[in-house]
């Protein structure tokens, strides 16, 4: 899933300073699961904004809605009326959702309430970790199912570097993923595979090649 984290309340409240009626829009997908922008967080943010603004001379009206997915037009079509009512929309989705909302409602000012962090998962309650670097060309079959592109601080493909010590990366609070790759490959009896030099990666398939776009004519309708 996409992992995101709410911006500080201070930052969000400053962004909506000049608005009197806002639509706070949650998303029922990834950001609900990572407790950043689901129905519950929409409620808390709405109440928080009201509590803050009630103390001044400019109270705020909040409209609350959470859609199935912000990254799909059909779900945004459903909130058209609600959007019309509001001066601005606070999107509590990932960066994709925010942009879909902005594109779907071109005359509305759209504010992001979250910082989108990574493609990852929850390893335990309250802890999420990056797992995929979205490099556009998966190499997990070469590294025992553990991704160095996303999980090595230097995205080294022939690791570990000299900074690895006791299974820890030289970067604070990071596990050395190459340590884990080696241990797993050893356990699976595939050390020989690691002795092969992984050549320079084709980063053009990653973001470095420019924004990526997928076209599949075989599934296009009309």
């Amino acid at each position: 899933m996409i992992v995101a984290e709410q911006k500080s309340f201070d930052e969000i409240s400053k962004m909506v300073e000049s608005f009197d009626k806002v639509l706070i829009l949650g998303c029922n997908e990834c950001v609900t699961v990572c407790l950043a922008g689901g129905e519950k967080e929409v409620g808390v943010l709405a109440t928080s904004l009201r509590l803050l603004r009630k103390q001044g001379d400019r109270p705020i009206t909040t409209l609350e809605e959470t859609v199935t997915r912000q990254c799909e037009w059909e779900y945004l079509d459903q909130i058209e009326k609600l959007a019309e009512e509001a001066d601005c929309i606070i999107s509590m989705a990932c960066g994709v959702g925010v942009q879909y909302v902005a594109e779907r409602f071109p005359d509305k000012w759209v504010i992001p309430a979250l910082d989108t962090k990574c493609a990852g998962g929850s390893v335990k309650h309250g802890q999420w970790e990056e797992r995929c670097g979205m490099c556009g060309e998966c190499i997990l079959h070469k590294t025992g199912g553990i991704c160095p592109v996303a999980r090595c601080s230097k995205r080294i493909l022939n690791g570990p570097c000299g900074g690895s010590q006791n299974g820890k990366c030289e970067v604070k609070d990071v596990d050395c993923i190459w340590d884990q790759i080696y241990k797993r490959m050893m356990a699976l009896g595939r050390m020989d595979q690691l002795l092969e030099i992984e050549p320079e990666k084709n980063w053009s398939k990653a973001r470095d090649g420019g924004p990526r776009k997928l076209v599949r004519e075989d599934v296009m309708i009309g």
């Binding site: 022939n158 690791g159 570097c161 030099i197 992984e198 050549p199 320079e200 990666k201 980063w203």
Partner: peptide
């Protein structure tokens, strides 16, 4: 931003 386009082993090979 860091680069790490290539790693040290790839650099050696280059």
């Amino acid at each position: 931003a860091n680069v790490f386009d290539v790693d040290s082993i790839q650099l050696i090979r280059i």
